[in-house]
Amino acid sequence: MLKDITVGQYYPADSPMHRLNPRVKLLASLAFLAAVFIISGVWGYALAVAMTAAVIAASRVPVPYLFRGLRSILFMLLFTVALNVFFTPGDDVVFSLWGLRATASGVAVAARTCVRLTLIIVGSSLLTLTTTSIELTDAIEFSLKPFRPVGVPAHEIAMMMTIALRFIPTLTEELDKIMKAQAARGADFDTGGLIRKAKSFVPVLVPLFVSAFRRADELATAMEARCYRGGVGRTRMRPSRLYRRDYIAIVLAAFAFTAMIAAGRIG
C-alpha cells in the first residue's frame, strides 16, 4: 500500500528533454499549463496534442509508462465526462439514459475537458519524469526568486522540499515498521467505519510524529555543524547554465504556445 506513493517520480534516461535546463523546463511547463486553459477550437487542441506528442517522443519515456500515471485519475476523468455529458443544458439531445438527457453541447464540453485534463496530467508528468528532484528544487528556488522582495523565502522553501524528498522514504519505512508492530499486537487497520479506522491510526501516528521531531532536531544540528547558515553566500556544485539547446527550446516553446492560442482564434 505504502509502496504506491510516488512523489516526483523520475524516469532515468538520456534524452534531449532530460538534458534541458530544469529552469527552462519548469517555466515552459507552467506556460504550457496556462496555454491549455486558454486554447479553444479543434485546431488549438490538435496543436496542443501534437506538441505534447512531440515532447513525449523527445523525452524517450515509454508511452505505457507515461499513461500508467493516468490510471489513478481515470475515475475522476470518467466522472467529469459523465457530469458534462448529462448535465450540460441544451435542446440538442443526442440520446437519453434512465431519464438523463445527453446533449450535443454536453458531449463537446466533455471531450474538451477530457483532453484538457489529460494534457495537464501528461504535461506535468513529463516535467517530473525527466527532471530529478534536486534539479526541480533548484528550478523552483530560481522561479520564486523574483518574489523574494515581497517576502517569499525562496531558498528556505527549496531547502524544505529537498529535506522532505530526502525523508519521505525514511519516514515511509518507519511508518511501515510501526504499523507492522501494532498489527502484531492485534491492531486492525482495515476494518470498521471511518472513525474506527481513524482511531486505529492514533497509536501509529503519535510515535511517527515523535520520531519525526527527533529527526528534525538532529538534522538541524547536523546542518549547523556543516556550516549551514541559510542561502546567503551559498554556492552550488552544479550551477544552472543555459546552453544553445536551452535557447532553442525557449524559442520553440514560445512559437508553439503562440501557434496553439492563435489556432484557437481562427478555428
Binding site: T162, R166, L219, A222
Partner: peptide
C-alpha cells in the same frame, strides 16, 4: 567537522 550517531538524521540531500 562532526559526525553523529544516527546515520539517517545527518544526511541532507537526496
Amino acid at each position: 567537522g562532526m559526525v553523529f550517531q544516527n546515520p539517517d538524521n545527518q544526511l541532507v540531500a537526496t
